[in-house]
Design a protein around this nucleic acid. Sequence first.
DNA 1: GTTGAAATCACACTATA
DNA 2: TATAGTGTGATTTCAAC
Lengths: 156, 156
Amino acid sequence: MKNNNNSLKIDGIDKKILRYLMEDARKPILEIARNIGISGAAIHQRLRKLESSGLLAGSKFIINPRVLGYTTMAYIGIFLDKAMSNPRAVKELEKIPEVLECHYTTGNWSILIKVLCRDNEHLMQVLNKKIQQIEGVSRTETFISLNQQIDRQIQI
Amino acid sequence: MKNNNNSLKIDGIDKKILRYLMEDARKPILEIARNIGISGAAIHQRLRKLESSGLLAGSKFIINPRVLGYTTMAYIGIFLDKAMSNPRAVKELEKIPEVLECHYTTGNWSILIKVLCRDNEHLMQVLNKKIQQIEGVSRTETFISLNQQIDRQIQI
DNA sequence: GTTGAAATCACACTATA
DNA sequence: TATAGTGTGATTTCAAC
């Protein structure tokens, strides 16, 4: 089940099943079965195997934040004082709903986060009144995403 | 249906439905109905409304790339020559499967991308043999994500 | 270990009020 | 928003390869 790189081995049929479901998690399993020419029960068993291997990490409905008026996405690089530990900062960032991602990175900054705001004014408020109020945050650098042109998962 | 900010108005029941489905896209609608105390048909109608409004942008199976041996995530800031147009660069980046996101950003770089690789060596190959081979790419700055500590959608 | 057919149960979806 | 009704899919079992 594992090859010498300690990564899971999946065959062509697994890949086909996953490609369908990664596009549309609610696609009926029997429809997939018909498309790739095996029985529904076979797909069930493969999915259970993939789930127990940990490869399948669940399914999500994707919502379009623009429709709710959230149009400004930005990345923010954060410099932390040496005294401030990363876990404590992350704990504070978690409380800010506009923060969607948080990465502990090599390079310039201590932390790189992705935020989603309604507009530039909202972004400014998040920066000034929330992020820079966190103890230990010394400086930030903001990069507004004018346009996200690629957004996808790993290709299999 | 729209308020004065031109954003969609959704009520508490819509939010509850969405919260269930954003966690698990395959959760049975009747189960949600039982949990929040309304009929399945009512949920159907609300989902149709939300879908036609464009808020629901589909559903996805989420896979865990670690299980496939992909453990190195990085952000790469790309400087483009003035001669190189952004759309042409994006077109080339789309061909690189390791590129998961691509943002046209304000600030230092022309483009900020997110890549997912098996390990540091793989990342180096993607950088040297793929990204820096693109015509018009003058320089790059790489930030490896040692640990992604937050990953979520917009909170509703 | 993997597959497919059959059978049961539960759900999706529509019409109607 | 709920009820009723029909069609369809999910899931298990079991036999066969």
